[in-house]
């Protein structure tokens, strides 16, 4: 046994509310990120990620309040990303009670920020998110490029080399999203996940495309057995839409030999 593969539900938050909503039957307010995080926590989430998609300073203050209230009642690691531009944003989010920050565009614009944050807080507090798109959708051998601003801006950077540079600069983990697969429900871009896992020595979180529990399993299955080899699987829609619960996903993975954390319900 080694460290368990992690399941990480991701909540998109805008102006203090969950975007897209989460369909939990028992939830009184499906739009409240604190209530959603607590529900995921109860259901066995190994970590929880908030992605802030609001952009204004006002929205930022609301987010910090949400983070603080979540940290008061959720006792698994909490990662917060979205809209982080400077060191001061990082400081504020960690001070509010997040365990990790996730930075994306800011790392492309100012790669030194990665070194700075890792030096100040340790690399375990820093996730670098990479949105990657295939150069040729039909041919993984053509490689992947890094996109920013929600997939709208092509940076021209090679995604695999970029992941390597981020890990070297101090990223504690790489959150790797396939823009080709995101929202499709067709499964992770396993070739992309494998390519990054084989290049970097830090944990890789696979993201983008999960539509079934089998997709989660493929993502974290070892490369030697045809999987992506990711250390963690992040998903949003399949958990939010109520099709699958975290505990069902855990049970599915455990039945297929994936080391996952047992929770009291899942014993």
């Amino acid at each position: 046994m080694t460290v368990a593969r992690r399941l990480i539900p991701c909540l998109d938050v805008k102006n203090g509310r969950v975007v897209k909503g989460v369909r939990f039957v028992e939830l009184r307010d499906a739009g409240d990120p604190v209530a959603c995080a607590a529900a995921y926590d109860r259901d066995g989430a190994d970590e929880i990620t908030f992605l802030d998609i609001g952009a204004t300073h006002e929205a930022r203050d609301i987010l910090l309040d949400v983070v603080a209230r979540t940290a008061d009642q959720v006792f698994v690691p909490l990662t917060v990303g979205g809209g982080i531009r400077a060191r001061s944003d990082v400081d504020a989010i960690l001070r509010a009670g997040a365990d990790k920050v996730s930075i994306n565009s800011a790392a492309v614009k100012t790669p030194e920020l990665v070194n700075e944050v890792a030096d100040a807080y340790g690399r375990q507090a820093l996730v670098v998110a990479i949105d990657a798109r295939r150069v040729n959708p039909l041919d993984p051998a053509a490689g992947w490029r890094v996109y920013t601003h929600g997939g709208r801006v092509d940076t021209g950077l090679d995604a695999i080399a970029w992941a390597d540079e981020m890990a070297r600069r101090g990223a504690g983990e790489i959150l790797l999203t396939s823009m080709d697969r995101d929202g499709t429900g067709e499964g992770y871009d396993l070739a992309l996940v494998r390519a990054v896992v084989e290049r970097v020595a830090v944990p890789v979180i696979a993201s983008g495309g999960v539509g079934t529990l089998a997709h989660l399993e493929e993502g974290v299955r070892p490369i030697a057995r045809g999987g992506g080899g990711a250390d963690a699987a992040l998903a949003a829609t399949i958990f939010h839409d109520g099709h699958f619960s975290l505990s069902e996903a855990k049970a599915y993975l455990r039945a297929r030999g994936v080391p996952v954390r047992a929770t009291e319900e899942g014993r």
Binding site: V3, A4, R6, Q124, A201, P203, I223, A224, D231
Partner: peptide, 17 residues
Amino acid sequence: RDDDGALVKIPHMGWNE
């Protein structure tokens, strides 16, 4: 390396039994 040949990563970060 673990039994599947995957690199054992440092720091050790995550849930363990």
